[in-house]
Design a protein around this nucleic acid. Sequence first.
DNA 1: ATCGTTAGGAGTACAGTGTACGCCTCGGGT
DNA 2: ACCCGAGGCGTACACTGTACTCCTAACGAT
Lengths: 248, 248
Amino acid sequence: MTDTLQAGPRPRLNRARVLEAAVALADEIGIESLSMRRLAQELGVVPMALYKHVANKEELLDGMVDVIVGEIDPPAADADWKSGVRSRILSARHTLQRHAWARRAIETRTAMTPRVLDYMDSFVGVFLTGGLSLDLTHHAMHALGGRVWGFTQELFEDPAAPAPAVSDADRAEMLRQAAQRYPNVVAIATSVTHDEGSVVGHGCDDQFEFEFALDLLLDGFERLHARGWTSRGAKTQQSNTEAAKTAR
Amino acid sequence: MTDTLQAGPRPRLNRARVLEAAVALADEIGIESLSMRRLAQELGVVPMALYKHVANKEELLDGMVDVIVGEIDPPAADADWKSGVRSRILSARHTLQRHAWARRAIETRTAMTPRVLDYMDSFVGVFLTGGLSLDLTHHAMHALGGRVWGFTQELFEDPAAPAPAVSDADRAEMLRQAAQRYPNVVAIATSVTHDEGSVVGHGCDDQFEFEFALDLLLDGFERLHARGWTSRGAKTQQSNTEAAKTAR
DNA sequence: ATCGTTAGGAGTACAGTGTACGCCTCGGGT
DNA sequence: ACCCGAGGCGTACACTGTACTCCTAACGAT
């Protein structure tokens, strides 16, 4: 009677099983209907059992995002930076489309998990190994951020806040460890603040990043307008990039 | 004793007062802490009293978005399309920054209020009177959509769903009325589906719109990279557009 | 001045949410 | 044989949105 009417003894719960079940359930019933109770019921378990594997619902959502980040294809190393970034973003988009709730869930996230940082680090790496400067890469990440993730603009704001009670030595040690695991993002974070001689954080001009991406788009519109561009041909035979190239 | 310790008789509640109080309260305590009970308390009223002026919380949030949309500066009519769009978007951004909750609230919205449609219509108008084609304007709106609002991609999906039980005649009448109030958005909506001879809706290739904006940005990065562009000068003295122009 | 109507606020109630706290029950190491 | 701790159970609480019923004050018509 301990096992309901399932066959065999119920396998033990663990974090991975909880997260995967949560993702599957969110796929099915939507993120707004996903409650701890509903998820527990799906796992044949009492609600509070989940809290042995997840601190709270917030952390559950963090974990779910981690799962879907893991589903994004790694970048193809051989390609040039442009097609590398392009395929990476399209892969991310594809993944987000398979999990309709993911976009909304990501937007509400406030913390930055290691897996997400790994993802960003490899993303930045594609730009840097492609020869782009730290400066340009930084702005490019911001410009693309709104298109892939919602968190990018907060990347360089948060890290300062969560650990206010550490000594300078500890802080330096943490940064050294971070630099080991996320060399690319740390390189960018330090380079942007290096110019003004400040510490990490608060060195990122959000207004500039916004206008940077905006003007890139507006310039693009203007160029296409001047060329008399139309989407009729581009849609069927070739990508925008190619269309723009031929029109150039 | 009917009035608590406020001076004078409490002014009657109305929709505008509810909405404004909700906006002010959200500014203060954040959107996630805004509950019907808390709002009612702020207005010195019992929770259920609010439901005489808003159907439910969803509609309350819709109304709050309407309020902040109304705060965005109207476009300056005299400028060229590019600077018109630019200043409009920067004004929108400025408004969204004053209400930190607004971005998140907008992203959860699913319905399209008349005020929002008005806003979009005037926005489209800036492009069209600037001489851009319907086609290019359409894609430009999508490309900018993710940057200003989160709803743009659903614009051409929803209108078909909410009214499934109307006759073709009624549908045509509704569209005629819509064309009168929102001439620009209707022009775009009909033009995009016109090509394939289908009815309104379902004519918008989301994947294409995504790649359109993506490639515009990537091409921009590439161009700046080739020019050896750096943000050092651009940040202090001039905008990106100007910097790009001088480098061109 | 009296009436009925009605809009708008009050009160109660209910189902559903996240989660704090304590208990119980196994499986495995000593 | 013992213990002990990881992990699941049960109860409980504060809080959410909102349905339903009642009451009261304002107002136009008689």
